[in-house]
């Protein structure tokens, strides 16, 4: 119980912080997108509570705006992967036969693939060849979310399939079928709720994974492009100047750490409750 609450509280706090970014900006009265060459790597001060980054922009405000991007990417990727994975897993379990075989072989294949090089490959692909505008922040986010979903649905689908198979085999479901409950209603009302706990766990972990992956892609120069801040690109930028300004690397690292820990706590909490 406490884990779940602690994790939820952490995440809620971070989400609130993300939402509060414009107010914080109004309160501090500095523009986190306008470079100030006189405040490069400035230490903490009343103007800049956490100091300033390599271009003299307020670190606190950038962390808050970065939270919008990082948490946004994480949540979007995890939710999309969970929905897709649950749907496909459910489909495989319910239809069985060749649908099941094809879906699960596909999942096996994706699991066997080395993820990072393929992420790199996808990240380096030219969005213009797919008809998307290049370099826009929204395209960046969309691209990263899409990449994460391609790999993310597999785990969820396997969990959902296993759960659905065991639920569909219960006497309870058989009885419901015998009573003439429609298949759609059966899946929606009786199977899906039984999958909620494992899928929630997988989803929480996927949020964590997405946030970490975004930071790795940023480190490789394939993540969210400036001037939009994300925790990943803030950390990646700061690590290059880590000897010059260690604090600039500390904050985004800490933010990622807290978010990932929050997700893990939630996952853990849900899992224990289910047990």
């Amino acid at each position: 119980m406490t884990r779940l609450h602690l994790g939820l509280a952490l995440l809620l706090l971070l989400l609130l912080a993300a939402v509060a970014a414009p107010w914080a900006q109004a309160w501090l009265g500095t523009d986190p997108f306008a470079p100030d060459l006189f405040a490069r790597y400035a230490g903490p001060s009343p103007d800049h509570p956490l100091g300033a980054d390599e271009l003299g922009r307020d670190l606190l405000l950038r962390l808050l705006y970065g939270a919008q991007v990082s948490l946004g990417v994480g949540l979007a990727a995890a939710l999309a992967a969970s929905v897709l994975g649950t749907a496909l897993g459910l489909l495989a379990a319910w239809r069985g036969g060749w649908v099941d075989a094809v879906l699960m072989r596909l999942a096996d294949g994706l699991l066997a693939l080395p993820a990072l090089p393929i992420l790199v490959l996808l990240a380096a692909m030219d969005p213009a060849k797919l008809g998307l505008p290049r370099g826009e922040a929204a395209t960046d986010m969309l691209r990263i979310v899409a990449i994460l979903v391609i790999f993310g649905w597999v785990g969820v689908a396997r969990l959902a399939r296993a759960g659905a198979l065991s639920l569909l085999a219960t006497d309870y479901i058989r009885a419901a079928r015998a009573l003439g409950v429609t298949e759609a209603r059966l899946l929606w009302r009786h199977v899906l709720p039984g999958l909620a706990a494992p899928v929630a766990v997988a989803c929480a972990l996927a949020v964590a994974g997405a946030i970490l992956t975004e930071s790795v892609l940023s480190f490789l120069g394939l993540g969210i492009q400036p001037p939009s801040p994300s925790w990943g690109n803030m950390l990646a930028n700061a690590q290059e100047a880590v000897f010059e300004a260690p604090l600039a690397a500390l904050w985004p690292g800490l933010a990622i750490l807290l978010a990932v820990a929050g997700c893990a706590l939630v996952a853990d909490g849900v899992a224990r409750r289910g047990r």
């Binding site: 790795v216 880590v242 750490l257």
Partner: peptide, 21 residues
């Protein structure tokens, strides 16, 4: 929890600063 949540390149750089530099 900590081990899971630390970005690996960040950890790597911290280790370098501490043990090498």
């Amino acid at each position: 929890l900590l081990a899971q949540a630390v970005p690996s390149f960040w950890l790597g750089i911290l280790l370098i600063i501490l043990f090498a530099v």
